[in-house]
Nucleic acid binder design. Structure first.
Lengths: 143, 143
DNA sequence: ATCTTATTGAGACGATTTATCAATTTCAAT
DNA sequence: ATTGAAATTGATAAATCGTCTCAATAAGAT
């Protein structure tokens, strides 16, 4: 049984529903993508540079956007680049960031997420992912 | 007394501290900016196109970035563009963002903020600001 | 008023992403 | 297995967004 059978089925379902085709390139990109928490198109391009067949950068972009439409990925614009987040790893997108030394601490808090759901429901939204960043000074930099 | 006296003072304080100058352009852009919840550089460029003096797009970008450094604005990347959020009266700015149509709903939730403080304290951080974005589908786009 | 320094506007530039298009591949129907 | 219509690919051109450059101008201290 392949490593990412569940996600591969989800992709195939989406392809079938939209008269799209299952290609070797899409399989390669899916495999690489599911091993990451998040990745940019450029990073993936270099990661897969040596694979056969050779993958063009345009194909990487097209395929990552396809994953977004299929519900496997979510694009997030950070700085000048676009990060493609792996939805199946979701839940760990929260960060404490020290504005002085740049230190980043990851955390997860179920209570906050419950409250987020409440806010979303109250506004008619269905949340697929979120991003929470707390900026401040870490213990060492406060002195 | 000018409409945005408080914010203008905050800007002047920042300018003074960094040997920067208070120009007619910066005043115009500040006035326009404070009347918005959030705006892109391009939108502001068109809004101010008829003003005297004429404002170059580069100046708009430079000035909005200056506002970020001065703590009056916060940049947020959505879609292909950068939104500059007005954080001058609200100390924070939380968003529900529809990933389909781009609709943005603003909200605030004291309980979430209390929990954020707890997380920060537990990790030795002192928070100065934060960013919370919930991504998903709005009611209209869910069908 | 003068002088130093920051700022401006216009356009060049750089980085990222999308559009174009001929050649190739998929896949359903023979 | 072969065929053939339709989707996909890779290379590159083009578009988009934001920053950089630089000569001219404006701010503000002396």
């Amino acid at each position: 049984m392949p490593k990412h059978a569940k996600e591969m089925e989800a992709l195939k379902a989406h392809l079938g529903k939209h008269q799209l085709k299952y290609t070797r390139q899409r399989e390669l990109i899916l495999d690489a993508f599911l091993q990451q928490e998040h990745i940019t198109a450029e990073e993936m391009y270099h990661q897969l540079a040596k694979k056969d067949p050779h993958l063009g950068l345009a194909t990487i972009y097209r395929t990552l956007n396809l994953f977004c439409e299929a519900g496997l990925a979510q694009a997030r614009h950070f700085g000048t680049q676009t990060q493609y987040d792996n939805i199946s790893h979701k839940g760990h997108h929260d960060h404490l960031i020290c504005t002085d030394c740049g230190k980043i601490v990851e955390f997860e808090n179920c209570e906050i997420e419950k409250l987020q759901e409440e806010v979303a429901t109250r506004n008619g939204f269905t949340i697929s992912t979120h991003r929470l960043e707390l900026y401040g000074l870490c213990g060492r930099c406060r002195h």
